[in-house]
């Protein structure tokens, strides 16, 4: 399996509260893994344990088959959920310092700082104190801090939060480039459209457990067939009574239906035409957002 990052049955509890319950997943070299779940589901705890900032009660984190130790952690690029840099230190000095803590020589560190600040669009600000930067630019510096030592593993907690669309594009490109270099990339996000677009595989966590973990395609297929019908004349309840059909969403002229196994989509089309003109009739799969919602609603029922 090569250089993959494995989280193996990691558990953590705080007193009576179970934060992680046998959390397991792995990220292969060159793979972008999206980590999604509600707030408090255990994403940050998992990442902190992977970085050794928190100790697990049980379970292991391995890279290339070996348990991750202090030496391995030095090659991880980490972006904590709680952003943190020295507010009164200059951007360039700060990044150089962090790069050197990861083992770069001062020459290598300066060179890397130059490259990454250029690439992330903050090269003009290397002489400024971090606290004088806008939040968006601080975020870019934070990402530079995770990348400046040329990490062999990337673990990013909410890297897209607080970024403007241009920065989102820069960040997306960086993640895909790193993966193309053979680096396992894990990131958490609430922006599911981004996760869907960037990730090869996605893990959905709930209550400290991995409840779904597969490729984006496989996860979307799992929810059955969707029908999107746009019929301006269709009133509420037009599709009720058709065998094997459930209404998922009905907003304005647009209705999203879920078809059970063997349900007849032509019967749906006939029912729609009976209400008047139909401007769109399309088969599709559930989106990641829909899947995520159904997982969360299971949680509420549980």
């Amino acid at each position: 399996m090569g250089r993959q990052l494995e989280i193996d049955s990691v558990s953590k509890r705080y007193g009576e509260v179970v934060a992680l319950d046998r959390m397991s997943f792995s990220v292969a070299a060159g793979e972008v893994f999206g980590f999604v779940g509600s707030n408090g589901a255990g994403k940050t705890t998992t990442m902190r344990i992977a970085l050794g900032v928190l100790a697990a009660d049980s379970g292991e984190v391995r890279y290339s088959g070996a348990v991750v130790d202090q030496e391995t952690r030095r090659v991880i690029g980490y972006m904590p959920e709680e952003r943190g840099l020295y507010p009164k230190m200059k951007v360039g000095e700060q990044l150089t310092y962090l790069a050197r803590l990861h083992g770069l020589s001062s020459g290598q560190a300066r060179k890397a700082v130059g490259e990454w600040t250029e690439r992330l669009g903050v090269a003009q600000r290397v002489g400024d104190e971090v606290q004088k930067l806008s939040l968006g630019n601080q975020q870019r510096v934070q990402l530079a801090a995770a990348l400046v030592h040329d990490p062999q593993i990337l673990v990013l907690d909410e890297p897209f939060s607080g970024l403007d669309p241009v920065a989102v594009d820069v960040m997306s490109k960086v993640l895909l480039d790193k993966a193309a270099d053979g680096v396992p990339v894990v990131f958490s996000s609430h922006q599911l459209d981004l996760v869907e677009r960037l990730c090869h595989r996605v893990g959905i966590v709930r209550g400290g457990r991995m409840v779904a973990c597969d490729t984006v395609d496989a996860l979307r297929d799992g929810g059955g067939v969707r029908l999107v019908v746009e019929a301006p004349g269709a009133g509420v309840g037009w599709a009720e009574g058709i065998a094997g059909v459930t209404v998922r969403e009905h907003v304005g002229a647009r209705t999203v239906l879920e078809l059970a196994e063997g349900a007849d989509d032509q019967a749906v089309l006939r029912a729609a035409l009976a209400t008047g003109p139909v401007s769109e009739f399309r088969r599709g799969r559930q989106s990641l957002t829909e899947l995520f919602r159904s997982v969360v609603s299971e949680e509420e029922q549980a």
Binding site: V53, Q70, R73, Y78, P80, E82, G84, L85, Y86, A145
Partner: peptide, 17 residues
Amino acid sequence: VEEKSSRVVELLLATIQ
């Protein structure tokens, strides 16, 4: 406390002891 309040401590402790 500066390191703690600015949260930079998490980034540092991910690298050093």
